[in-house]
């Protein structure tokens, strides 16, 4: 199954009530697949007039307590940023899938990781965060969906699944089965009609003196809670490693092969693979930087995640980059050469 369809089916299995989307390569399979499957399940599918409308449809469905999602690719996700800020301000649960493509501008339809800043720093206005998941296989991409919906409902926050053109298009065997849901709080804030309760209001406008500040502190407390409890990351062969590659998504798949090959040649190299890009696994990287090592960030961009690595390392060790932007995909041997250069320079071999 291709990644796009796997994540779509996983979303259906996870109980997605409504999908709103707009065509954009390289994620069209999601929209097409959902148009069929959601109809089969008697659920809601709407192809909107723009990504901007799509995120606002998600906003409406989420406000009534439904599990709603949208998917798009980089330029479309840019159009959704206003909506995502409103989702954060109104504390609504939502799932947004970004199958990244080369940018900036119209860019190209090749895979890329150039939206990392937008995803992890938030491209909308105001102080807000949303959870960002960075899967690196079709199976993991599919597994992200139930996790994303649960996290969204649990924390009343937007969860972005950050994939890329390769992950979306590549085909791999995948196991799709219902996953048990986390214990989730009731949605008594939802707009369901005032049958036997007082009026519910979903809003992000707080004009009263200090009210918005209060909301921001509440959001910040939520973010701290997420940072403390929801970080996911894989540590691969780093125990004795003197060089640590840090990579996520498809770049991590490629880097893993380079690490294995280098290991075969006796180079002590390992990899830390962030799965949640926000909250970023700073603690794990900081711990790894306790002993002197050379960190190599491998990204399909000019270097964005590297900044989070540097923040975690706090200058204790060198942090270098092997990045290829604009749809360029780093090859295994390139990464291997880079690792070899690092070993010579640091005299590890």
């Amino acid at each position: 199954m291709c990644g796009n369809e796997a994540l779509a089916e996983a979303a259906v299995i996870a109980g997605c009530d409504a999908y709103f989307g707009y065509p954009i390569t390289p994620q069209n399979e999601i929209t097409a697949y959902m148009s069929r499957r959601m109809a089969e399940e008697g659920r809601v599918f709407v192809q909107s007039e723009s990504e901007l409308a799509a995120i606002n449809m998600v906003f409406g469905a989420a406000a009534t307590g439904k599990r709603a999602m949208t998917s798009s690719s980089s330029p479309g996700i840019s159009l959704m940023q206003e909506g995502m800020s409103y989702l954060a301000g109104a504390e609504l649960p939502a799932v947004v899938v970004n199958v990244m493509r080369g940018g900036p501008g119209l860019g190209n339809i090749a895979p890329s990781q150039g939206d990392y800043f937008q995803a992890t720093r938030g491209g909308g206005h105001g102080d807000y965060r949303h959870i960002v998941l960075g899967p690196s296989s079709v199976q993991e991409l599919a597994d992200c969906m139930p996790l994303a919906f649960d996290l969204a409902d649990q924390y009343r926050i937007t969860v972005m699944v950050l994939a890329d053109g390769i992950l979306g298009q590549m085909m791999e065997p995948v196991v799709l089965e219902p996953k048990p849901r986390r214990p989730l709080p009731p949605k008594d804030w939802a707009l369901t009609g005032m049958k036997d309760r007082k009026q519910n209001i979903v809003r992000s406008l707080w004009l009263a003196e200090g009210a918005l500040e209060e909301l921001n502190y509440r959001l910040e407390a939520k973010h701290r809670q997420i940072r403390d409890n929801e970080v996911l990351c894989e540590e691969y062969r780093i125990e004795d490693a003197e060089i640590i590659v840090v990579a996520y998504g498809i770049a991590a798949r490629i880097a893993r092969a380079a690490v294995d090959r280098a290991r075969e040649q006796g180079v002590p190299v390992g990899m830390i693979r962030p799965i949640t890009l926000w909250p970023f696994p700073s603690a794990q990287i900081s711990a790894a930087a306790e002993t002197f090592r050379v960190f190599l960030a491998v990204e399909m961009s000019c270097g964005q995640m590297i900044e989070d690595v540097k923040l975690a390392v706090e200058g204790r060790c060198p942090v270098l980059l092997h990045g290829r932007p604009g749809g360029g995909v780093p090859m295994v041997d390139e990464i291997q050469d880079k690792i070899r250069q690092l070993t010579i320079r640091s005299g590890a071999v």
Binding site: L52, N56, M57, F59, G60
Partner: peptide, 18 residues
């Protein structure tokens, strides 16, 4: 009544979702 306040101009899209 149950009310929602939405981004400028996006009400019909939000209404569609609802």
């Amino acid at each position: 009544v149950d009310m929602i306040e939405v981004a400028h101009g996006r009400a019909p899209a939000v209404a569609t979702g609802m």
